[in-house]
Design a protein around this nucleic acid. Structure first.
Lengths: 200, 200
DNA sequence: GAACTATACGGAACAGCGTTCCGTTTACCA
DNA sequence: TGGTAAACGGAACGCTGTTCCGTATAGTTC
């Protein structure tokens, strides 16, 4: 999948061959370990799977969050880029928003433990938090603004809040009696119908 | 607040005085430790606060979840008992449901880390899970049934699912940019307006 | 009041985690 | 074919929850 950090950067004098190889190996090992045991799989397990020492993991990925981000970067980027496309293609802004949220939920519920990690306030996950928010909040805000401008939804819910809420609802997906998708759907429906002042 | 385990039980020959004293001391210490540092405060901190050894904690409360349950039992009972009362007093079943959910949310958001613990799949929290579900699911189901029978809400959301969703939304409450109550409100609104088949 | 015993206590010890650190190995370049 | 900076492996550290057992003590019995 193309070489990592070859050419371009003159300032960084190019990493050693074994280092580049290990980084790729680690990404693969982490990805399969995440699938097998969730994103909270012990670091030692990932190291063993990759056939390296734990020190090697931390040299390449200073914190566990960096590893998670690296593994899922492609999919998060794809989700972010789908936002404007949906807005252009969908009949209404609300429909685009609903579809985009569905993409996000599909992504989250298929990654065991990712939703849990996303809303952990553990300092180790700060960069994970930051990456998801930096990348997705603007996209969500654009969809939200469009729907609000069109008068299709109540205008007082922020993109941060909605993403966080949806992420929270995805925690525990996979349990048979709990359908996160349905509850997220309820949330989106409520967004359309809820009066700004609320009941009572 | 009455004595603990006095009289009645002949089978249990009554605990020693120091044991009963320590149990009460531990409940107080745990309660204030939970307020100060969240329900995930280290066991050693609670022990230190109570002036006992960690062994004493585990003798009285075999698992951390038992301690949490013991500390919050009164409030959970109160919440459970409020359900039928609200149903009798409110104009509509949906209003009763909304108010009861509000009680639950108020309880959760004021207990740092409790919502997080509730949806943890850690085996240590199994009894915590079980207690909350045993006590609250039937109440929620009663409210839900009443509202569904009255045709005020879509009938395909289970009490378990709703409680879990609401609990999930309460995770991270306390963060300034995240208003769990508002999102729960959206969920309840969606419950009223959502068509069983959903959009699209 | 003294002796005896079941009960309860305290905290050292264990296991599992993330993370750090450093002696050793290895890839690259001259 | 050395020499050296880069990278590696895994022991070690600090922090968890939990267990275990020698010691202290409350309650009972004479």
């Amino acid at each position: 999948m193309a070489d990592i950090d070859s050419g371009s950067g003159r300032a960084t004098p190019r990493k050693r061959a074994d280092a580049r190889r290990n980084e790729a190996t680690l990404l693969d090992a982490a990805a399969s370990a995440f699938v097998a045991s969730g994103v909270d799989v012990p670091v030692r397990d990932i190291a063993a799977r990759a056939g390296v020492g734990v020190g090697t993991i931390y040299r390449h990925f200073p914190t566990r969050a960096d590893l998670i981000v690296a593994v899922y970067r492609h999919q998060v980027e794809a989700c972010a880029e789908a936002g404007p496309a949906l807005l252009a293609d969908s009949g209404t802004a609300h429909a685009a928003l609903a579809q985009w949220i569905n993409l996000f939920v599909d992504f989250l519920v298929t990654k065991h433990g990712l939703a849990e990690a996303l809303q952990s306030d553990d300092a180790a996950f700060a960069t994970l938090h930051a990456y998801f928010l930096d990348r997705l909040v603007p996209v969500c805000a654009q969809l939200l603004d469009a729907a609000a401008t069109a008068g299709e939804i109540r205008p007082d819910v922020t993109a941060f809040e909605l993403l966080r809420g949806v992420g929270n609802l995805c925690v525990g997906a996979g349990e048979p009696r709990y359908d996160a998708r349905r509850l997220v759907e309820l949330l989106i429906v409520g967004l359309r119908h809820g009066a700004p002042a609320g009941p009572r």
